[in-house]
């Protein structure tokens, strides 16, 4: 497994961490923008229209985001396969819970659950957006009544209790993934300091709970108000 794709084990974890940092920033801004839908439908419509039609967001940031997601998933699966191959014969008796958290040992499970959720999320929001904007060619962001359609479409998706439930469960997996992933990314890029690392771990715990909780709040709010 020495230099797969010209990378060593350290460069692989470094790039895994970099893509992780990028996704952390994306998640935060996504959560903040979506939270506007709870506070003010008008503001949510305005920001959504900007994000959905701005050329920089659509043609520069969105492809980078897509690459980041695919890279993070692909690299995660590759690392998991390599790591499984490093121990062909397993222990007859093993107590991994004695020395490491469940989250740190099961990043591949929580990661795959998040990716499955992304499939549903793309089906719900991204693919219809691509259809309206780039196949039908309607960049106005308006519905038949001549009003912005974003808030209405968002609320419509959460009519279904099963879909809302799936979103909530997925955000639980996201929280579990972030509880290890946030602080692990700092360690992977070599940032560890007696003074700052405890702060990073606390910040990571806050981020890992607050951001998924924000998404849960949005989903449940629209379900209850649908």
């Amino acid at each position: 497994m020495s230099t797969t794709n010209g990378m060593t084990s350290i460069t692989r974890k470094f790039f895994m961490a970099l893509s992780g940092f990028f996704l952390l920033v994306f998640l935060l801004q996504h959560c903040v923008i979506n939270m506007l839908s709870v506070i003010s439908p008008e503001m949510f419509n305005t920001v959504s229209h900007f994000m959905g039609t701005n050329p920089m967001v659509q043609f520069a940031l969105q492809p980078v985001l897509a690459f980041g997601v695919v890279f993070h998933l692909g690299m995660g699966i590759m690392l998991e396969l390599q790591n499984n191959n490093a121990r062909s014969v397993k222990y007859a008796m093993n107590k991994p819970g004695e020395n490491a958290t469940w989250m740190s040992r099961n990043m591949i499970i929580t990661g795959i659950m998040i990716m499955l959720f992304l499939g549903l999320h793309f089906y719900d929001f991204w693919l219809p957006e691509l259809n309206v904007k780039f196949i039908q060619g309607d960049m106005s962001g308006l519905n038949a009544a001549g009003e912005f359609r974003y808030f209405e479409e968002l609320q419509h998706k959460f009519h279904d209790p099963i879909r809302t439930g799936l979103y909530v469960v997925s955000f639980l997996f996201l929280a579990l993934h972030l509880l290890h992933g946030f602080q692990s990314a700092f360690q992977s890029v070599g940032f560890r300091h007696n003074k700052y690392t405890p702060m990073i771990k606390k910040l990571g715990d806050i981020y890992a709970i607050m951001v998924p909780l924000g998404f849960v709040t949005i989903a449940v709010f629209h379900f209850l108000n649908a």
């Binding site: 790591n83 490093a86 020395n99 490491a100 958290t101």
Partner: peptide, 14 residues
């Protein structure tokens, strides 16, 4: 280390 076939570190801390 990589050549010897050890796995990748995932920072579990075990």
């Amino acid at each position: 280390m990589d050549h010897e076939g050890f796995g990748n570190c995932t920072n579990t801390g075990a």
